[in-house]
Design a protein around this nucleic acid. Structure first.
Lengths: 335, 335
DNA sequence: CTGAAAGCGCTTACAG
DNA sequence: CTGAAAGCGCTTACAG
């Protein structure tokens, strides 16, 4: 068995109270008893039991992170950012894959409660009433990343999706494009779906281009698989397009694959701009121009905010993160 | 504060012992006391405190997972597989990003020990003497995924790298290629580096093709960045090549980007086969033919084995996982 | 500077 | 079928 505080106390000939004090760098012991205790600790290879500490301190030094899909490229950088600051600030992270079933979500929420995590980071999904209710009952800080809630007062860190989409489309327009199609994710999605379409429309409008619904194509999600065949569909509806804005990088890459199949050259014959700036954006051929969400930084910031809430006990302001365009090689200037 | 077992005991007018029994589905209570207790639990919204349970049971129902890079595509599927079975079997996972610094690794090992995780899954890195020593002192089950140790007796689940590389190169040969180059990762890496080169050499030899070191190019890692420019280098050393075996998908995709830059058409002018079958393999243009490691299944299996060890208390046999080739579109038949 | 004791929220013999 | 009590490994007043 692992040695306990009792073992070191015995070995050092002091009470467990003073061992505890030394461990926690409080005061109330002489230099030489400290020395004796440290010696005993080293000899025994003693490591404090964080479970016992957690029980009494009511702090487990761990935070829970909820992902709809832990293995997506989208989650990857957020996770890394969170891990980075959590670790630096003495916390570990338990990661939860909630999938699409609300079931799994509720299971995990309950689990995180039983495990008494100190806080929760909730990524890119929508907060339902049930989720909010249990979250609230847990009475621990929560921060949202890459999502937000209109109904419930939870701090979030995210990009302004409408604005970002607006920027992406405006960029295309600046490059001389006026016949711009869009491949959208689920329009019923109020966080990442509709706002991007609205941004697209607004950019057109502000530049005197009228919206044409034949230039818009919708698929139920944002994944590579969802995007398959969408470019064909778009071009079938409306042959006369010089550029397309895809609502995610995976959708964009999917469109590039479709273009390749159809023998359409990107960007010579068709410009494409994505959204996200996933790792795959640099790996695509040619490299994808895209609207970047700084996912890694968003992860870091969300963890910072959460841990701040933990120390101050106060809630924190939401943060709209600036987006920007990463120019690579899929958008061509046109007259 | 969260209600405790004491609160429900009081409310139901029983002792905490019987509440505990009911919670743990043991026997020793009447149907109607159970009913009363369940009622109290519901009314209070009581959730057992897993920290207290962990302290007394000496089981935290959590396992630690160590990744050199949590955010890599390689980690993604392994993580998902582990999460899947861990969750199904009532365990949560704390994920650790160890980076390249051995430092971070030791920190995390200590942390996992203090948190008293029930077991550890160690992925795709090499076990040093120091790691092994601390792992051993923790006296908990460990399983290795996508790596192994020759020096230390730790069960692993992985593909046979040499054999897999052999298969990939043999596939190229079957397709009629005889002038086959290789882009290798770090040759000093005894797990994923050298064995793949050995497999390459052996496949050549067994097919009566002599190895030519001008057809081999080495880069310090397996990432997309590491691969940049390697195809140029290879072709400069030896122009006369019809196919290349890349030691990872990222390296392969990198080579495809290089080929694109150089105006070389894949697979018409040059065939490429990768290794791993990451998500990016299907997304590349054209889709990448590759030697697949079933990462998701390997993740699942490693968790199964770890949890089995936890229940049986016995160590478990290592598993060599079968690999296979996913034929997509980057390898062309040749005469 | 130091220790005895209570307590965190549970589980588990032990006794009835 | 049920409860009182000890104990898991710590921290923290409290008292000296």
């Amino acid at each position: 068995m692992n040695p306990t505080i009792k073992d070191v106390a015995k070995k050092a000939n002091v009470s467990i109270a003073t061992v505890s004090r030394i461990l926690n760098e409080q005061k109330g012991y002489s230099a030489k008893t400290k020395e004796r205790v440290m010696e005993a600790i080293n000899e025994l290879g003693y490591q404090p039991n964080a479970v016992a500490r957690g029980l009494i301190n009511k702090r487990t030094q761990t935070i829970g992170i909820l992902f709809p899909d832990v293995s997506s490229m989208f989650s990857a950088d957020i996770l890394k950012g969170i891990e980075e600051v959590a670790h630096n600030r003495g916390h570990s992270i338990v990661v939860c894959h909630t999938g699409e079933s609300g079931n799994r979500m509720m299971e995990y929420l309950q689990l995180l409660n039983e495990k008494r995590v100190d806080g929760i980071i909730f990524t890119s999904a929508v907060i339902t009433e049930a989720y909010y209710k249990t979250l609230k009952e847990m009475k621990i800080p929560v921060v949202l990343v890459a999502t937000q809630s209109y109904r419930f007062p939870l701090p979030y860190v995210k990009v302004d999706d409408k604005h970002a989409a607006y920027s992406a489309v405006s960029y295309l327009i600046q490059k001389g494009h006026r016949k711009i199609g869009m491949i959208s994710g689920d329009m019923a999605d109020k966080i990442a779906g509709r706002p991007r379409v609205e941004g697209y429309k607004q950019a057109l409008e502000d530049h005197g281009i009228s919206f044409d619904e034949k230039k818009l194509v919708v698929t139920p999600g944002f994944s590579f698989e969802n995007g398959s065949g969408m470019l064909q569909k778009l071009l079938k509806q409306e042959r006369d397009i010089t550029a397309v804005f895809a609502a995610s990088d995976e959708l964009a890459v999917s469109a590039m694959s479709d273009a390749f199949e159809m023998g359409i050259h990107v960007p010579e014959e068709l410009s494409i701009i994505g959204y996200d700036n996933l790792k795959v954006a640099e790996m695509s051929i040619p490299p994808l121009t895209t609207l970047a969400q700084p996912l890694y930084e968003m992860g870091k910031l969300s963890a910072e905010l959460l841990l701040d809430m933990l120390v101050t006990g106060e809630t924190v302001e939401s943060r709209i993160i600036p987006h920007n365009i990463i120019e690579r090689k899929t958008v061509k200037k046109v007259n």
